[in-house]
Amino acid sequence: MENNFFKNIEKKTGVNMNDIFQLANSIQGANLQDETTVRQVVKQVSKIAGRNIPKEMEDKIVQTIIQDGKKLDFNTIANMMNNKK
């Protein structure tokens, strides 16, 4: 049943669940106050989401996560990428 659940999510979102799990594993225990680490995660999320983000937007996302202490997860970054300010 769990496998069908993930397959349905993949069909609806176009996002491979293995990619999400690999991302989650890669950030466990990572220093999320480190700019290089956060920047790598932002790039991974961008790739998984199939969205290119301009350098200016990447900088804004990275600084927001580091300075404001925002929770770093796929949804936070995806929402910031979709924000049309």
Rank of each mutant, 00 (worst) to 15 (best):
T13N: 08
G14A: 05
V15T: 10
N16H: 11
M17R: 11
D19A: 09
D19I: 04
D19W: 08
I20T: 09
F21G: 08
F21C: 11
F21K: 08
Q22L: 14
Q22T: 14
Q22C: 10
L23R: 03
L23F: 04
L23Q: 11
N25G: 07
N25C: 07
S26E: 02
I27Q: 01
I27C: 02
G29A: 07
G29Y: 03
A30W: 02
A30V: 01
N31G: 09
N31W: 01
N31Y: 05
L32E: 02
Q33A: 08
Q33H: 06
D34H: 04
E35F: 01
E35K: 06
E35H: 09
E35S: 12
E35P: 05
V38F: 00
V41C: 01
V41H: 00
V41R: 00
V42W: 01
V42E: 00
V42R: 02
V45E: 00
V45T: 01
V45M: 03
S46Q: 04
K47M: 05
A49M: 07
A49C: 04
G50K: 03
I53T: 13
I53Q: 05
I53M: 10
P54Q: 15
P54F: 15
E56W: 10
M57Y: 09
M57P: 03
E58N: 05
D59M: 12
D59P: 15
I61F: 07
I61H: 13
V62H: 07
V62W: 05
T64Q: 14
T64R: 12
I65G: 06
I66E: 11
I66G: 04
D68I: 11
D68F: 12
D68V: 04
G69S: 09
G69P: 03
G69M: 13
G69H: 06
K70Q: 15
K71Y: 11
K71R: 07
L72Q: 08
L72V: 15
L72N: 07
D73P: 07
F74R: 11
N75P: 08
T76N: 09
